[in-house]
Simulated assay, not measured.
Amino acid sequence: MGDDLDTRIRAAAMTWLRQRCTPEDPVVHRDELLGFHFEGRQFSLIDNQLGIRKPRGMTAALSILTTYTSDGARAPYEDEVGVDGLLRYKFQGNPSHYTNVGLLRAHELGVPLIWFFGVRQSLYLPSFPVWIVGIEESSSQVVVALDEAQRHLPLDGPVSLIERRYSETISRVRLHQPVFRQRVIQAYDTSCAMCRLRHRSLLDAAHIIPDREFRGVPAVSNGMALCKIHHTAFDQNILGIRPDFTIEVRADILQEIDGPMLKHGLQEMNNLPLVLPRRRADKPDRDLVEERYERFRAAG
């Protein structure tokens, strides 16, 4: 009976999340997660106080949660990835706490969980299904796989360079990039920082310093919410951002004659102020902006 309940709850929760979290609105509010209903009664998908949700009557943990914190210029994932490229999740206090026991049971049974990542206060981006594939008691943490391929990577021996890079790519594409994107878009109130376009599906989280570089950390202060055309123009050094957060269009582009998109979408951006987040911690790092602006000038 318990196993059947466990299976039904997991299936119902993930089905609801697939329907609720669309490309246009992929994040879910805390109140929605606490107020989820299952078979006619309220059944919270997250714990009201703890990071691990192990409901009474279920055989294993249902979800894990990472709380939102302002990250400034620090990489928020640097202490969560092992040498194998897989992500880690810390136990909740005492290893014998019932929530941690729930994680151990999830590992033993191989059942899928939901991982809720905070992108703003009380707003979460869900990632599912995920699996607990290893226990590291000495570090008080579990190893989390984000897809079926990661579930079968070796944990008890050396990991090849190819396997590590493959695993890191999965973690970046499945979790780090989506979380970074939503944190940046939320910080900019779902609006392009240049043209103020508010269609979420047409917005990107542009890196000031590219993420392939050491200083290109996945932090909001290294990002800007830009529509797709202005993101591409920024990456191609058609547009630049001065250290005083003013938009500058490359001189040769200003001289071109073309259709209305060039005129209104690019040329008229010249000398306009960038629309910045309200919170100081979310604003672009001025040093990174200045570094990127020097590259823009060199390209011009």
Rank of each mutant, 00 (worst) to 15 (best):
E78Q: 14
G57E: 04
V27H: 00
L34K: 13
Q121C: 04
R30S: 07
A60C: 09
E136W: 04
L33R: 09
P112N: 06
V83C: 03
S96I: 07
F36D: 06
L45E: 04
G118Y: 10
G57W: 09
L125R: 10
Q49P: 01
V27Q: 00
H37E: 15
V101E: 14
V130R: 06
Q42G: 14
V119R: 11
Q121E: 13
I132N: 02
P95F: 10
H107G: 09
E78G: 00
S96E: 13
D84N: 15
F91N: 06
D25Q: 12
D84S: 12
E24Y: 01
T59S: 12
R30M: 13
H107S: 01
Q141W: 03
V143W: 03
E108M: 02
I64E: 01
T67N: 08
G82C: 08
T69I: 09
A60M: 02
H29L: 07
V28W: 06
F38V: 09
P76M: 07
V119T: 15
R30Q: 15
T22G: 01
T99A: 15
N100S: 01
P26S: 08
F36R: 06
P112W: 06
K54D: 01
P55L: 00
T67L: 14
L103N: 03
I135A: 02
C21Y: 11
Q141K: 10
L109T: 07
P26K: 11
S140L: 10
P55Y: 06
V27W: 02
Q49S: 14
G85Y: 12
G102Q: 08
P95T: 09
V119G: 01
G118W: 08
W131E: 03
V81K: 05
V101K: 13
G118N: 09
F117Y: 04
G85P: 13
D31F: 05
S70C: 01
L33S: 04
T66A: 13
F43V: 01
R120E: 15
E80C: 10
D31K: 14
G57Y: 06
E39P: 01
E80L: 14
L125I: 04
L50S: 11
L87T: 07
Q92F: 08
L86C: 14
C21S: 13
R105I: 01
W115F: 15
I114W: 08
Q141G: 02
Q121I: 03
G57N: 05
T22H: 10
D31I: 10
R53M: 07
I132E: 06
H37W: 00
R105Q: 13
V133A: 05
D71M: 14
S139A: 14
P26C: 11
I52W: 03
V143Y: 03
P26W: 09
R120D: 15
S138N: 12
Q49Y: 06
F36P: 13
V130A: 05
I132Y: 02
G57V: 02
H37R: 15
Y77E: 04
V130M: 07
I46M: 05
L104Q: 12
